[in-house]
Nucleic acid binder design. Structure first.
Lengths: 141, 141
DNA sequence: CTTTCTGCAAACTCTTTGCACTCGT
DNA sequence: ACGAGTGCAAAGAGTTTGCAGAAAG
């Protein structure tokens, strides 16, 4: 039950937290292997999952591509370049809504965007006190 | 080169545009098969892709799960219940920033949220006039 | 020493694709 | 009749998992 500090876990964490380029699991594997040539991809996946569960790394799942990992654990958004595939961290300023103007001024061309909120729906919330009864399939936000 | 209106394409579109529950490709397949028992999963995938390219359906890619399809093509956000997995469309009111209060009032428990913007980074934009030169790896937004 | 973790390889899920045939146009 | 689209089945990418042995505490 107790978590062990294996070299592999430390190496995986190190690679992700140092990386600024949102590496995929495969890429993390490649980098970890530079230090531990005998590490296995399965171990890298297991450790990435463990770190994500502890919120020590962040999983970034973008349209159809493989998941990539981000050492930036603070709350922030992402910009995905549809040509080169680069992922840019968009650090949020306070609670201000994202301002596309700022991005455009920095040279980005803005296309679509997706916001997903995770949580519990009214049906699933712990004690449904005050819950609005029927869960709406669509909701004005 | 010309697009054909096959029964399968029409059926796939029909299933997705009528559905309010964000079905996965597998689920769309199941439903299309009720009308065309000989349809293949490959065809469903091909037609979903075609429809998505034409913006007649929307692909919703949520953390690790299989992609699901949304007949709602207007710009909107999503709420994913982490317990039951239900996806709720969050219809946006004008350009107003998403207001979590409204959701909470409706009985939702808000957890994390992810905003991803798609587009072109400064390096990849067509004619890099006025581009800020080096692309930032992180950006204040 | 005990228990968790690892390496390996096989399995699994989701999605794409090659091919011969079908069916819209 | 032409060629885009189909069904089928196999391949592919990404990720997970069972197991025997390694190593952290």
């Amino acid at each position: 039950m107790k978590e062990r500090q294996t070299r592999q876990l430390l190496a995986v964490y190190d690679v992700v937290s140092v990386a600024r380029d949102h590496p995929s699991a495969e890429e993390v594997y490649r980098r970890v292997r530079r230090r531990f040539p005998r590490v296995s991809l399965g171990t890298v996946y297991r450790n990435l999952q463990k770190l994500a569960a502890q919120r020590r790394v962040r999983v970034v799942q973008l349209a159809d591509r493989a998941a990539c990992y981000d050492g930036m654990v603070e709350d922030h958004n992402h910009f995905l370049c549809e040509r080169c595939g680069a992922v840019t961290d968009l650090v949020r300023r306070e609670a201000a809504p994202p301002d596309c103007r700022t991005l455009e001024r920095a040279g980005y061309v803005i296309g679509a965007h997706t916001l997903t909120i995770y949580g519990l729906c009214p049906k699933c919330r712990p004690r449904s006190v005050g819950g609005a009864g029927k869960a709406a399939e669509r909701c004005r936000l």
